[in-house]
Design a protein around this nucleic acid. Structure first.
Length: 542
RNA sequence: GCGCCCAUAGCUCAACUGGAUAGAGCGUCAGCCUUCGGAGCUGAAUGUUGCAGGUUCAACUCCUGCUGGGCGCACCA
């Protein structure tokens, strides 16, 4: 069976050429979108054309529909389409044949865990940089959400044929690292009985004292304190992320970057955009969309934070990546323009850099906000979330809302194994299916089932829902946000539960049971792929 | 003071990026267990999309001005 979208696209282009002559108007962009309740696919080309041609959209829609109906056999539409109607203000809705959907289920059964996989990304090299927290302390919930989003996004993009690398930018030198060293030093002095005062901007957490204690045993020199601290803390961070199911392909060290001379090399490329003033070197970023010019080399000769970052992004392109995705916390949003300006100055398309701001999750416990203060070292850590609610619930909750919107995360709700908790709703559907499949005949070959037996509303709705899976992934890619997948899985679970409530799978006539087993096998496959992409486990039993 | 983001049902959030009757979950109320997992299903109530204008076939979505929240505005990282 030919791909319905190629057929559709050709048919629409052809119809537009016939009905609207190019001399009269350019062919407007059209889009096929999933519609909610009006057919299976809907086309808004007539509405778009209406404004271009200053003609009533509904009239154009009627003409197009008439054309589609007349030429459906020739252009291949009739193979998929049961009915085409112009509805509402001028939408053209396509109602697809049940057999088309049954064919989709067949595809799922044969492609199994590869259903929805595509080569749309054409191997394009994508670098997703996320978390990148300073190695000065354990990760917080804010990093946890970035980790969940970045990892799921990476999974989805690889599934869609992109060549994805996960990278953590390691800020292993500079001011914060010096402060880490001094924090350890001061705690060590206290351990040795000195009555040293501990400044407010030092790292307050208890882990500093732990580091100091170990350093005391090792008898390290003061100059090695920060390096030792970074190493130890990094090991903790790496372990936390691994326990959260996130593994990075690359840890990119800022120190190594500077020592390699790449910063100077990047500045050579930027030469025409740099100038000196008041003893400092400035980057003329204003003409490239920034609010004001930025200092890159301070008057004392040292780099600002922006300098290695420019070189870092320059290096990303040099390593062959053509799409850079950065996940940042909301406190960095003011930084986007200057980085885009740098990218532009280096001769790259600023649109090839996508900066996603991952909004904060505010933590609640039984509906009450949990106070957090990084300064006092009082914040909910990734570790605490992991210990308390587990990987599955944590990841699902972080992904449940649009990445760009703040969300509230109630630890007690996430822990509950009830209907309030959406991750269990989805996993329950999965486990339920597994249970039925276990009770079914052992040697069932699902691909051989007679799918034409599936005629009930709930059955067809379920297949239709499965058919929407690849679209969902497509939306995730376009919005650069895996969140739509969580919504999709909840909806799919819901449609399944409804089907389950109304129809029995086992104990029907043999062929009927086989057909329904094939159907739920398809649901298991799709929910399984989806949960896998989100990094949530697929329990056979709960 | 300047800039960016947000404001939608009692609560948490959607609305496929300008589309059709603004939808879900939770909570509330009323129902469904002789049969594959009740962690489930069915039904009911809930809205002047913060306010005021504007743009067009069409506005929660875009523009302007208010109101109320969050975050940025370093020769810090």
């Amino acid at each position: 069976m030919k791909n319905i979208h190629i057929v559709l696209e050709h048919a629409v282009h052809e119809a537009l050429r016939e009905i609207v002559r190019p001399a009269d108007a350019p062919v407007p962009p059209f889009e096929v979108s999933l519609s909610g309740g009006f057919g299976d696919l809907s086309l808004n080309a007539a509405l778009k054309l209406g404004s271009l041609l200053k003609a009533p959209p509904r009239k154009i829609a009627d003409q197009l529909v008439e054309y589609f109906r007349k030429n459906g056999d020739r252009n291949g539409l009739s193979e998929f389409v049961r009915e085409i109607k112009a509805e509402g203000p001028g939408f053209i809705n396509f109602y697809l044949k049940d057999d088309y959907f049954r064919g989709q289920l067949k595809d799922i059964l044969s492609q199994k865990s590869d259903f929805g996989r595509s080569d749309a990304g054409a191997g394009k090299k994508v670098l997703i940089e996320f978390v990148s927290a300073n190695p000065t302390g354990p990760l917080s919930v804010a990093h946890a959400r970035q980790a969940a989003v970045g990892d799921a996004l990476a999974n989805v993009l690889s599934f869609l044929g992109f060549s994805v690398q996960r990278e953590y930018y390691l800020n292993d030198e500079g001011n914060q690292i010096n402060i880490l060293g001094r924090s350890i030093e001061t705690r060590l002095a206290a351990l040795n009985g000195a009555n040293a005062e501990f400044p407010e901007n030092y790292y307050q957490g208890d882990y500093i004292t732990g580091l100091a204690r170990r350093i005391k045993e090792k008898n390290l020199a003061v100059k090695d304190f920060s390096e030792y601290g970074v190493k130890e803390i990094l090991a903790v961070i790496e372990k936390e992320l691994r326990d959260f199911g996130v593994v990075f392909d690359c840890w990119y060290s800022q120190k190594t970057l500077r020592e390699s001379g790449k910063i100077d090399a990047a500045f050579a490329l930027l030469k025409d955009h740099l100038y000196k003033e008041e003893g400092a070197t400035w980057f003329r970023s204003t003409p490239l969309g920034d609010d004001k010019d930025r200092v890159v080399i301070k008057s004392d000769g040292s780099y600002t934070y922006l300098a290695p970052d420019i070189a870092y992004h320059c290096d990303k392109y040099k390593r062959g990546f053509s799409w850079l995705i950065n996940l940042w916390g909301p406190d960095h949003h003011g930084y986007i323009n200057r980085l885009k300006a740098s990218v532009a100055a280096l001769g790259h398309d600023p649109d090839s850099l996508s900066v996603i701001i991952v909004q904060l999750a505010s933590i609640f416990r039984n509906g009450k906000p949990v106070e957090m203060s990084t300064r006092r070292g009082q914040y909910i850590s990734l570790r605490e979330v992991l210990d308390e609610v587990g990987v599955d619930a944590a990841r699902f909750f972080f992904l449940m809302r649009r990445t760009s919107s703040q969300l509230s995360f109630d630890l007690e709700v996430a822990k509950k194994q009830t209907a309030e908790n959406p991750v269990y709703y989805v996993q329950y559907a999965y486990a339920r299916i597994c249970s039925i499949l276990r009770s079914g005949p052992e040697d069932c070959v699902y691909e051989e089932a007679d799918l034409t037996l599936l005629k009930e509303t709930e059955e067809l709705q379920l297949i239709r829902k499965l058919w929407q899976f690849p679209y969902t992934l497509h939306i995730c890619r376009n919005t650069i946000d895996p969140y739509m997948l969580t919504v999709y899985l909840q909806e799919t679970a819901e449609v399944f539960h409804k089907f389950y409530d109304k129809h029995r799978v086992l104990g029907q006539a043999e062929e009927m049971t086989k057909a329904r087993l094939a159907l739920i096998k398809g649901v298991e496959t799709v929910i399984g792929i989806g949960l896998g992409l989100l990094g949530v486990s697929k329990p056979q039993k709960m």
